[in-house]
Write a protein that binds this DNA or RNA. Structure first.
Lengths: 121, 121
DNA sequence: CTGTATCCCAAACGATACTG
DNA sequence: CAGTATCGTTTGGGATACAG
């Protein structure tokens, strides 16, 4: 008997709208990317400087998903060398309040886990 | 050269507080579990009924992580059969506004992707 | 500069069986 | 009822090389 694949399971977003939202912004880097986009348009390599830990590959993938979900817009300048600018769409803008709240919550509470980490080392 | 394991990389929560918050509520089921906890205390099997897609194992793991991060409290009644109640801690309560916003956003915008899914089938 | 493609290891997860 | 342990598969994601 084959195990269920991802496609077989229809996540019940009806029952859990929170799950739907998290599915869009909960990706490993999406929250951070969106946060930086609040300040304005960003280029590919700008993201890499802002998030040194993200790999080339992951940045591409995460941006693609956000684009696919209609959260960000990708503007390509047809020139050499290429230039691509990412920005929030109108739909993306509606996420800004949530991102901001998460930013503030993180600022206010990130101490907790650091304290726990200290003890662990 | 050994590939970096998860432990080797210290995520820079300093630079990205959003990342820290998402690390806590962004788990596959955490948002949903927290959402249901807003209404009040829940038992293990209540969660299973509320989220039929979550497996026994995953429910345990996600609850453990939330407990470890100080977001939820686990109250064990020493009796047979066992009874365990989960509830939000004070810290967990501070997340409620964020969860609520994600719930509302999901309700309002979940139509988008469904439309895309229709076309895909 | 901004990607895409491939390979491959590590982590996540489901299924299942067992326990107090 | 509410878990834990183990196993095997699937997925995530890093490193690297190549391309327009």
């Amino acid at each position: 008997m084959k195990a269920k694949t991802k496609e077989d399971v229809r996540p019940d977003f009806q029952a859990c709208p929170v799950e739907y939202t998290l599915d869009i912004i909960g990706g490993k880097w999406k929250g951070v990317l969106l946060y930086h986009l609040i300040e304005g348009t960003k280029r590919f390599n700008e993201f890499r400087k802002l998030c040194p830990n993200i790999t080339h590959r992951m940045l591409t993938l995460q941006l693609r998903e956000l684009e696919r979900d209609g959260i960000i817009h990708r503007k390509v300048y047809q020139q050499v060398p290429p230039k691509v600018e990412y920005s929030l769409t109108d739909l993306g803008m509606t996420l800004v309040p949530i991102i901001r709240m998460m930013k503030e919550w993180g600022d206010r509470h990130k101490g907790h886990r650091e304290a726990a980490d200290e003890k662990a080392e």
